[in-house]
Design a protein around this nucleic acid. Structure first.
Lengths: 225, 225
DNA sequence: TAGATTGTTAATCGATTAACAATC
DNA sequence: TAGATTGTTAATCGATTAACAATC
């Protein structure tokens, strides 16, 4: 234990840990007690060594021959990802994307608790969504400071996103999860995570083009598995 | 020109191209005619050399001293990403996430046209959303085959996702954009792109923890820019 | 011409994969 | 003990960055 090493963890590792976590929860439900990297790798189609390295990066130890204790592993991932201490979060923009995120019940297990939602549409303000009252945008800064909010979620249309980000930063928010397809301008000390669906789409369509090139129009013979 | 080289393009490149595309459209609107990698790099905080390599991978050429012709560049990216020929797509699951995606008007410019939406909730079937009639799930396979659909979007709750994926594959769909937090089992020839918000969240929370460690509680002094 | 910018090759960096020793 | 599995070091691979030549 002792002081956490300040070495930064590779982003791919961070993105794989929740995948393991999900699978481990499944195993846990089935009553399994131990699990090896080989097992996990088979299920998630990943290299066992890579998985072992990921666990090592998260500071989780196993035992040769036995593998990892399931509860220990689940616990370790949650602790490492900071999912143990729930962060209170503001969400701005109650469109359909905002509503979708509010519906993700499991966010709370992952350390994210949306405690207030904002919109600047007068028609929406005052209404309730998922048991949360929609507040006017001009209350964001004061409330964020008062409550010490550190994470903000932006689900407004693109043209409004920068203004919202500015308010969040004024309110002391340090990490922004941005669903609007725009490049936000923020101070260096602020983290922005862009959830840019257009970028994902590019990936998908290009990959599809590649696959079709190698195994074209399969209208007759459909692959079975 | 000639036959496209079959060398696969790095995923990071594919994910950056839409970023360039978006910025270039902005410049185009302002009446700019040429642009250099230096300009783009400054705006998007990326290395100019990297941008040049990305353009090269997309088969786009510039001219020393001048830079790239804006329209040529925009056109080249769209062509390379396959955004020129629109793919007809099915979406399954008309919850709030499904509704959110249906609202992304700009998908069409990116080669994605959602031509039919499905749900197995009898209460939803027959209703309209974004001018599209919601069809019962059991019509998916036949329709997909009939229309030669290649891309499917899954926005159903996690427990229903695998069954939907199976139907899509039966219907001849080759690429699945999966918004349900589950690991889908598909044949090798099928592409799956997981839009896993829990994985993103892990990244965000860990990064936040890192930043707070180096520059802690800034409740008084808020960074300005 | 001089200088900015592309094009291209080489160097660096980081992540993945392989190899193998340690261990229960 | 033998064998599976972790732990750890080395090799490989791929992407980023740097260097520099070509060119308009």
């Amino acid at each position: 234990m002792g002081v956490e090493s300040s070495k930064t963890v590779p982003e791919p590792t961070l993105r794989r840990l929740p995948l393991y976590h999900r699978y481990l929860l499944q195993l846990d439900k089935l009553g399994r007690e131990n699990v090896s990297c080989t097992d996990i790798g088979l299920e998630l189609k990943l290299d066992p060594t890579q998985i072992r390295k990921d666990f090592e990066a998260a500071g989780i130890e196993g035992r040769p021959r036995v593998g990892y204790v399931l509860t220990h592993l689940i616990d370790g991932i949650e602790r490492f990802l900071g999912w143990k201490n729930v962060q209170e979060t503001f969400l701005v923009g109650v469109g359909s994307m905002g509503a979708a995120l509010l519906g993700y019940k499991k966010f709370e297990r992952c350390g994210l608790n949306i405690v207030a939602v904002f919109d600047n549409d007068a028609a929406k303000v005052g209404q309730k969504i998922h048991h949360k009252e929609i507040l006017p945008l001009d209350r964001l800064v004061a409330l964020a400071r008062q409550m010490g909010i550190l994470i903000g979620i932006i689900t407004v249309p693109a043209p409004a996103a920068q203004a919202v980000a500015d308010l969040m930063i004024q309110g002391g928010i340090r990490a922004i999860w941005n669903f609007a397809p725009v490049q936000l301008r923020v101070p260096e000390s602020t983290i922005v995570l862009n959830e840019d669906l257009y970028c994902s789409l590019a990936f998908l369509s290009q990959k599809l083009a590649g696959v079709l090139r190698t195994t074209p129009s399969q209208s007759a013979a459909i692959p079975r598995f």
